[in-house]
Design a protein around this nucleic acid. Sequence first.
RNA 1: GGGCCUCUAGCUCAGUUGGUUAGAGCAACGGACUUUUAAUCCGUGGGUCGUGGGUUCGAGCCCCACGGGGCCUACCA
Length: 493
Amino acid sequence: MSEEIEFDDLPEQIAIRMAKREKLNELSSAYPVALPITHTIEATRAHYPNLEADVSTGDKVALAGRVMFLRNTGKLCFATLQSGTGERIQAMVSLDKVGEELLESWKELVDLGDHVFVEGEVITSKRGELSILADRWLMAAKTIRPLPNLHNELGEEFRVRHRYIDLIVRDRAREVVKIRSEVMQSLRNTFANRAFMEVETPMLQVMHGGASARPFKTHSNAFDTELFLRIAPELFLKRAVVGGLERVFEINRNFRNEGADRTHSPEFAMLEAYEAYGDYNTMASLTQELIQNAAKDVFGTHVVTLDDGSENDLGGEWPKVSMFESLSKAAGVEITHETPISELKKIADKVGIEIDHPLHGKYVEELWEHFVKPGFTGPTFVTDFPVDTSPLTRDHRSIPGVVEKWDLYIRGFEQATGYSELVDPVIQRQRFVAQMELAAAGDPEAMKLDEEFLKALEFGMPPSGGMGMGIDRLLMTLTGLGIRETILFPLVK
RNA sequence: GGGCCUCUAGCUCAGUUGGUUAGAGCAACGGACUUUUAAUCCGUGGGUCGUGGGUUCGAGCCCCACGGGGCCUACCA
């Protein structure tokens, strides 16, 4: 059967292009399966770095690219072809080289956005533009929809919803994807140099855990059971350490059924790493090295230039400040793990923070965020957190009432977190029980008691350090972009 | 979740206190042009003004509801 297309219902430009597609299929093909390409645009450009204007090389190439600009005159046509990396080269189609038929079909059938193939001599035009003077041309892939106007900025919504177009028309969009890929490579190299193994743990889980967050729920038909998308890989990576995988890391997606804004996405890429016989100090130096190596590997310097032109200095040894000490200093009163909640509440009231929570540590963290966090600029480790808000972390070895945990802050948001992991199964069970009480009191983010995880700990987990880092946020730190610009295809409704 | 703003041609945007036939640039179509660089010149077409309802003699503009999006605010990384 022939194709029946209702041109009348289509926007004018699409209907016209559909007709051109049919014409191309009659002549040969609008979508040929293969083309005799001999060179890439990049290779061709690289091979002739600085030719004079108006020269003929005598060299023939055959290449293809997407038409970004068309400049047709009566008997000589120019097109700017672009490769996937954004590299461009000019194609020239002239009457005396291709003949009347091919020239006319070029003018009739080639639109902006089409992929075209040209074969011909490498020359430079009278204005010095490196060009392929075509002996022949072929359609490589016809576009049905017109490309957006290249001379105006696309709106943020359009860019996110049509990232493939964003990648075609905007250099920065391609750059960010490249930077992200190189950052991932750098992270993996740093781990490899430290003898870490990369593993993958379940994203569908019968019981979610490893963080305080609300999960996405789903259902398995095969098992006829409720499943959760993971909020963190932690409890499985610790099982791996119990099993003797003493240096492991995982880079994969976490899902949290919570807010979305400039620094939060419902699905986000997470890096977690565990090191047997490490602790929160070794994890801090690992984290600093991961980030500094990434900056150095990708940009060649620890001082990265952000999207707004400002600089972000990630070099040097990053300072550590104690949460309780820095809070006490900033608040002007001594605050410890023994300061009664009623006292903390008074301070909170005085500065206008509303908190109503059963946990002492929640007050401390909220007050800290109010008094201390805004003053942060350069990378800083905030150390030694309250016990009751960190149920998977070991008590501090010498300071009572706090755990061996740090959060790394860069440019005012939490970039990474690290721990001396709790490995005592009895204390871990007590912590879970305390979480269950919170859940019973209505806290939707409280952790569940994970019997299978406790069983693993009961087989003996070596003393270990652990760290977690948001990959999207690392990209934000390195580029200054919002989270939706660092994710290739962010969730859109 | 709460508050404020926004949606007009393929894209980016104008559109007056409610008043004839809703405009521009790019893109498209027809014509001219053998060295263009967002080519240029002449001409032409293209709109359910987010959707549905309401007020009015008359709605792109005012009112209500719904949908998409943004910003601020609260919570989590």
